[in-house]
Design a protein around this nucleic acid. Structure first.
Lengths: 204, 204
DNA sequence: CGAGTGATTGACTTAGATCAATGACCGTGG
DNA sequence: CCACGGTCATTGATCTAAGTCAATCACTCG
């Protein structure tokens, strides 16, 4: 299932890109939802703000993430969306989306599949956060993200990004990786990790 | 949007309940998905098992949770599902679900809406785990779960459950709550927390 | 070439985990 | 009706792994 196929070409065609300066508001709680946003670059935060101006971040969306899926099904946004860096977003209008869903059941199905996949992925991520030990958290990450061969883990971004993903400081991740290498549990390469014999994952 | 309405009566009617003893396997990776499971009671874990028998928990589903949504859209399960306590589950067959989606667009829409809501909820939960301080994590929880009045937070379960939800030990939660009470930030009641003046959340 | 960022390691601090103990409460079976 | 086992609630003492501060080196990009 191609990650890019979650929106049918018809919807993709009507997507309107828009640039946001840092600090710019994309939408506010209470407004009527206009559609689904995809973050192309930069970062957009969903937050609630209380009377005193204190913010509660609900979600921090980076490049590739979509926001406001749930708003497609409700009468108003439930939070604010603010770009915290210069950002580009693409808007897929609600009307176009539902029109497409009605005329093209496959599109609806693909979108459902994407939601379900994302849900599973983020649940797995959350589960990982229940692991307190940094080492075991990394092991969990490796086990989940290992390739088909059961021993190679591609590292997409930087180690700092990995650390953020795991909810650890980058220092701890560096140290823990170093210890795992020292213990011959893994080997490190440019953009991948190789799990060593006895630590390989065999997906049944 | 009623949480109970995510499955149309037609689908609900064909749900088949089943009891599982602790340790019992519900399905295994590689098998062809038969449908969507709802956990009625007990706990079911989704996990991957490596050759050495070590398990990686992908998700731990408790009463009220559903599992295998993503499998509805794929040719095989990607992990094992095992009851870790005596459990009851309800199976909604894949065929019935998609038949209903085809004949009743509202059902498809309701299911989509539920997926989107769940996604948002779990993203918020994950966001909360990025907060290191126990106190701030609680504050985030309060801010997100405060009632319409902006100062009352209903506590559904026990404090231990809350602690698990927050990814903290129950001792730390007790202590932190005690400190927040001492600082007049909150008041505790039987099944609710009252945020004090200056700490109330005002949803704009 | 200099500014900015990632990678890496060391030293030190601390918040939360862990271990432990006690009292309250609740259902249950005799 | 009551004693008992179980779990929750709560607090204290101690430990430790992860966070924090800091420094260095490598690399890339105008």
């Amino acid at each position: 299932m191609n990650e890019r196929d979650w929106l049918s070409p018809n919807i993709r065609a009507v997507g309107r890109e828009r640039a946001l300066k840092a600090g710019r508001t994309l939408f506010r709680a209470g407004q009527r939802p206009v559609g689904l946003y995809e973050v192309i670059s930069g970062r957009v935060r969903l937050l609630r703000v209380d009377r005193a101006g204190r913010e509660t971040v609900l979600y921090s969306a980076n490049a590739g993430d979509t926001i406001a899926e749930a708003s497609l099904f409700s009468k108003s946004y439930h939070c604010d969306a603010i770009a915290t860096t210069p950002a580009r977003v693409r808007l897929y209008p609600k009307d176009a989306i539902f029109a497409e869903f009605n005329s093209n059941p496959d599109a609806a199905r693909a979108f459902m599949a994407r939601l379900a996949n994302q849900l599973m992925e983020v649940r797995t991520r959350l589960q990982r956060r229940n692991i307190h030990s940094a080492r075991e958290r990394l092991q969990h990450y490796f086990a989940v993200n290992v390739g088909a061969d059961g021993r190679t883990v591609r590292l997409a971004g930087t180690v700092k990004e990995l650390a953020a993903d795991l909810g650890l400081t980058h220092e701890v991740v560096y140290r823990t990786l170093a210890r795992m290498v020292a213990d011959r549990e893994i080997k490190r390469f440019k953009n991948e990790i190789r799990l060593m014999r006895g630590h390989m994952i065999m997906i049944i």
